[in-house]
């Protein structure tokens, strides 16, 4: 598989990275290098192998439905780049 410029633009869009043209060209090359490197895995037949997403064999970790303190609203907004009263403020959605 090889990645085209179009793929790069699509992936950057999915990842919300506003790449400029120069970066797009650079990533096209670099990603192809890295993905070629990853092609190595295709040497292995893994048809009958189960995937491992969790290395630990644990399950059913639950908490009980008991209310705990929320943050003070000033702490919630302490790091907000922009706010409007007690709301986070963002540019509009066009």
């Amino acid at each position: 598989m090889s990645i085209t410029k179009k793929d790069i633009i699509h992936v950057a869009d999915l990842a919300r990275l506003g790449l400029n043209d120069e970066e797009t060209i650079k990533y096209e090359k670099e990603l192809n290098d890295v993905l070629n490197f990853m092609e190595k895995l295709n040497e292995l037949n893994t048809d009958d192998v189960e995937p491992t997403s969790h290395v630990l064999d644990i399950h059913n970790v639950f908490r009980s439905d008991v209310v705990e303190d929320s943050l003070d609203v000033e702490d919630v907004l302490a790091n907000a780049p922009d706010r409007d009263e007690d709301y986070f403020k963002v540019p509009s959605i066009l």
């Binding site: 990842a15 990275l17 506003g18 790449l19 970066e23 993905l35 540019p91 959605i93 066009l94």
Partner: peptide, 29 residues
């Protein structure tokens, strides 16, 4: 930026470093 999507994209492009962006790209792909 006047649009929230543009704000997110430009923010992430501008303030993430090269290696981080590269791994995000690889992972997303």
């Amino acid at each position: 930026q006047n649009d929230v999507t543009d704000m997110m994209s430009v923010t992430r492009d501008k303030f993430f470093g090269k290696e981080v962006k590269k791994r995000i790209m690889i992972g997303t792909y």
